[in-house]
């Protein structure tokens, strides 16, 4: 089967057995991302989990870069690493995350969750590989101004075709802002 697969792939000119440099880097970084993600969900030290999440998200930013989605990559860094993770750490500290291992970091549901995740992963990977094993995408040469993920390209589509969702999103952000303020405000009679 593998041989047949390899044959079918090689017949199209792109073989899994002769990866390009970008592919090698992508796979390596991907492994790092995956490892960091697994540590994020498995470590029993709460703040370590957040820091591993930083690694995973940063690695994903590199993956975006490799996929020539430069703008998305920097947005990822700016929003996720700069804000979301900081917020998460903030929340962890406010909920008094302890130093060291928390033996109760995982709920009793973990074995069910593990089984489910493994089954889901098996299903999804099988389906994805089955569907896309022969699909090749041509990455545009980096540096060209009209590349896929440049700021200009993104800006143009965003403000030409996606203006309405963009504005709707701004409303959503505003609502989230108001909601967060209302939620975290301490009522006077409580204080």
């Amino acid at each position: 089967m593998t041989a047949a697969l390899a044959a079918s792939l090689s017949s199209q000119g792109h073989s899994f057995l002769s990866p390009t440099g970008v592919e090698i880097v992508f796979v390596l970084v991907g492994l790092a991302v995956l490892g960091a993600a697994v540590l994020t969900v498995s470590t029993s030290q709460l703040v370590h989990a957040a820091l591993w999440l930083v690694v995973a998200l940063g690695g994903l930013a590199i993956e975006y870069l490799l996929l020539t989605a430069e703008f998305i990559a920097w947005v990822q860094v700016l929003i996720y690493l700069g804000s979301v993770v900081v917020l998460v750490l903030f929340g962890l500290m406010l909920t008094r995350a302890p130093i060291g291992r928390s033996p109760d970091a995982d709920s009793g549901n973990r074995w069910v969750a593990l089984g489910l995740a493994v089954v889901a992963a098996g299903t999804l990977v099988t389906l994805v590989v089955d569907a896309f094993r022969c699909t090749w995408m041509d990455l545009p040469a980096s540096g060209s101004t009209s590349v896929n993920g440049s700021t200009q390209a993104n800006g143009e589509v965003l403000f030409r075709y996606w203006v309405l969702p963009f504005e709707a999103l701004s409303v959503l952000l505003l609502a989230a802002l108001v909601g967060a303020i209302v939620l975290s405000r301490r009522h006077r009679e409580e204080g």
């Binding site: 930083v54 920097w74 947005v75 860094v77 700016l78 690493l81 700069g82 804000s83 993770v85 900081v86 750490l89 903030f90 500290m93």
Partner: peptide
């Protein structure tokens, strides 16, 4: 974006 990461060190 990258400057924003610096605060992680403080945290």
């Amino acid at each position: 974006a990258v400057m924003g990461i610096g605060v992680l060190g403080s945290l």
